[in-house]
Each structure stands twice: as structure tokens, then as C-alpha cells.
Design a binder for these strands. Structure first.
Lengths: 223, 223
DNA sequence: CTATTATTAGAGTATATGCTCTAGCCCGTC
DNA sequence: GACGGGCTAGAGCATATACTCTAATAATAG
């Protein structure tokens, strides 16, 4: 494998494990067993590494959210989108974690991310439309679909942050498991619940039950 | 005013404007016109300043979310809670911005914040119950109330992050206005909409309309 | 007034971090 | 086998950051 690729992979791995803020370029080089000079031969600076990773993430999600317009959508389609998006979220989970700082320090990234966000919101709306055409969703006003899409986006992109903040202190820094992340699907389906038509409603509710967050079972100690 | 208090106030101000990550203890001291030594006479370290600020935030929100149990709740109560919570969010907006890093670097804060989260989730559920008793909400299963409360929490605590990430690059670093933050109320009411009873439903929808996010009007350029 | 304590100034330190610079190695080509 | 460009090592720099140390100054009590 080319050194450039290795840098990307290792950076992503370390960022995901420890957070971008806690991973220096020297760490990345050391972890790879290469010199800092070598790393900087392949990338002008740290931002470029992050930007590269973002573009891969973007490509992946755009691929996932390529919604067919020539046919209505099914419950299976919907679950597929959810599973895919949360998979992507897991693979690039560092990104949403340090998002604000990253955007503040790279205008290019800020602009691209903004467009990315609106593309995703649009895709969510198109999924709603497809599901309505498939008889899964009730028809709703454009305004409501827009607000709903935004709420879905908020839940999806920040579920990870919630999980991490609700973790007890004694667990390690990288203790969230992919299955826990998937529990965000439960929350998204909770949002959609009131807008589902029978008989799909019961079907989706049954699927939803499988993702029930484990945090909910636990009772918090309010000392 | 005591120096200690001044340090807290200035820190909060600078953190809110520039983000905790971008504000050093030397900046705080310089901004106050005092020496670093003086600052460190009053606080052992930066974490202690942040922890102090968090405790004030906690106190404020706990005060806002002191839900009466001896009477049902009205639509006005609900709107009052929303307005208050978003006010608090605005005053301490730096906090949710750099949350993950802050929690990673202060176990004490992590533990307190975890409990704080669960207290808030509990308060949201009790608001739901109060509104049900007041005839504003339909009755729902405990499971649904729990999931709903969590979604409300996610939207409230991350609305700010969304706004900042959706800002175009040409706006300043502290360009979000409090009215924009309040638009999060629209999103929360969107969540609650399906569970409202007539005649309150129409009333709430009318109130909701006043908070409609301006971002929604804009069309994004997907270059 | 004096002794003690609380507060403040400000130079300075240890460490980290992103990044640079120069020299040299590897490897394919003529 | 010599040449040259792609690649790599690694010492080291400029800057920043959280924090310390000493000495001096205010405030307060006896």
C-alpha cells in the first residue's frame, strides 16, 4: 500500500479512537513508523489530511443516499438507508465529534460540509416522498417534511455525541460499540412513527423494537 | 466585583464568542488586564474555571426545570419551559460546543454532566405527564415518552451545532443570533405535533409558526 | 504602627505541536 | 554504472499553551 493511503487510514483510525484534537501529526507518523518529514511530503498540513478523509466520507454517504426516483420506496429501502448511514457514521465518527473546530479552521471544509448537509436533507425529503409513494407514509405538507427531515438529520448526526456524553466515567475513551450507535435507528423511527400508514406501521414498530437503546433500560443515579 | 467573579464572567464571554478551544488562560488574563499569576491564584487550572461555569449552568437549568407536580400543565407552561431552556442554552452556548473534549478532560465534569442529562430527560418526561394531565397531550406509553424525551433533548442540545455548521463561510465566527437559536423551538414543537390534542393542537401550531427557522427559507447552492 | 494574610504582577518554564529543512536512499532508465 | 526523480529520515524550529515562582503590594487585624 502507498504511504499516502496508509497515512489516511491510520489518521482515520487514530482520530476515531482518540478524537482529532488528541492526535498530532507526530503521533500519526510515529504510529506508522515513518518520519514527520515523510508525512509532510505527502500532505501539506493536517487540515489536508482531514479534508481528504472528509471527501471519502462525503463520497460514501452520497453513494448511500442515491435515491431512486423511478419507483416508490419500501420499508426495506428505508431500513437499508438507516443501516447504511449509521455504518458510515461509525466509520467516520471522529468527524462529527470535532466538527465545529474543524469547520472553524478550514473554510473549504466548512463550505463543502454545508452543501453536504443540504444534500443530505434533500435526500431525506426524497426518501419521505418515495415512502409516501410506496404507501408507507401519509402525505404531509412540504413544510412539515422539511422540519421532519431536519429533526431526522439532527438525531442521526448527534446520536453519537449523546452516547458519549451519557457514558459513565469508568468506561474507556473509545468504549462506544457500533451496535450502540445503531440504536440511533430506534430514535429516528420514533420520529417517523406518527406518519406511518397501516399495515406498515406495525411492521416498522416491530423492526424498531430491535434497536431499543440500552441506555434507556438503565436507571441513572442522581446523587 | 471580586476578581474571581470577573474571571468567570470574562471566561464565559470569551468561550461563548470563540469556543473554549480557542481561548487560553493567558487570553482571559489579558482581556481582564490582570496577570496569569493572578488568574492562577484564583483557579488551580483551566478545568476548574470551566467546572465552575458548568455548575452555574446546571443550577440555572435545574431552576428552570423545577416542574410543579401539584397541578396539570398548560400550553403556556410548555412555551415558558422552551423559552427558558433556550435562553440558558444561549448564555452557556460554548458548553455544548466543545462538550466532548471537556468531558474527556475532566472526569468530575463527565459524571456531573451525565447526571444532569438524566435529570433533564426526567424533567422532560414530567412535562409530558403534566401536559397530558392538562389535556394538552394524548396519553402515551412510558416507552414512547422516554424515546420522545430523548429526541427532544437531542434537538435542544444540538440545534446550536447545526446552526453553526449550516452557516455560510463568510459570516463571522460568532454570527449566530439568539433569535436563530430560538428557532430550535420550532423543531421541538414539530416533534410534539402528532401528540397534541384539539383544541390545543391548533394553538400550538400557531405559536410554532412564529419560530420558523430562516435557514429553511434559503435554498442551498449545491455546487 | 506592625505583623500577617490576601492578592497581584510579570518574567519565565516545561512541554507540546504543527511543520521545515537538508541530506540521503531506492529504483527504474539510458 | 551513472543519472534523476520519487520517497524517506530525523534533527530541529517557531510558536503556543497551561502553568509556576518570586517578589512586591494592598488589606486587615491586633
Amino acid at each position: 500500500m502507498k504511504t499516502r493511503e496508509k497515512i489516511i487510514l491510520t489518521s482515520l483510525e487514530l482520530f476515531n479512537e482518540q478524537g482529532e484534537r488528541n492526535v498530532t501529526t507526530n503521533h500519526i507518523a510515529a504510529h506508522l513508523g515513518i518520519s514527520p518529514g515523510n508525512l509532510y511530503y505527502h500532505f501539506r498540513n493536517k487540515s489536508d489530511i482531514i479534508y481528504d478523509i472528509f471527501q471519502e466520507y462525503e463520497k460514501l454517504v452520497d453513494y448511500y443516499l442515491d435515491i431512486p426516483t423511478d419507483r416508490p420506496l419500501t420499508v426495506d429501502d428505508m431500513m437499508g438507508y438507516l443501516e447504511s448511514v449509521f455504518d458510515g457514521l461509525w466509520s467516520y465518527r471522529f468527524f462529527h465529534r470535532d466538527l465545529e473546530f474543524l469547520l472553524d479552521n478550514d473554510q473549504r471544509l466548512r463550505e463543502d460540509y454545508r452543501k453536504f448537509t443540504y444534500r443530505c436533507l434533500d435526500a431525506i425529503r426524497r426518501i419521505f416522498d418515495g415512502l409516501r409513494d410506496g404507501g408507507v407514509f401519509h402525505d404531509q405538507s412540504e413544510e412539515l417534511k422539511e422540519a421532519m427531515a431536519l429533526n431526522v438529520w439532527l438525531v442521526i448526526t448527534h446520536w453519537m455525541a449523546f452516547l458519549k456524553s451519557a457514558q459513565p466515567s469508568d468506561s474507556g475513551s473509545d468504549s462506544i460499540r457500533p451496535e450502540q450507535l445503531k440504536e440511533g435507528i430506534y430514535q429516528v423511527l420514533t420520529l417517523e412513527m406518527p406518519y406511518l400508514r397501516e399495515p406498515y406501521r406495525d411492521q416498522v414498530m416491530a423492526l424498531r423494537a430491535q434497536y431499543r437503546p440500552s441506555v434507556m433500560a438503565k436507571k441513572a443515579v442522581n446523587g
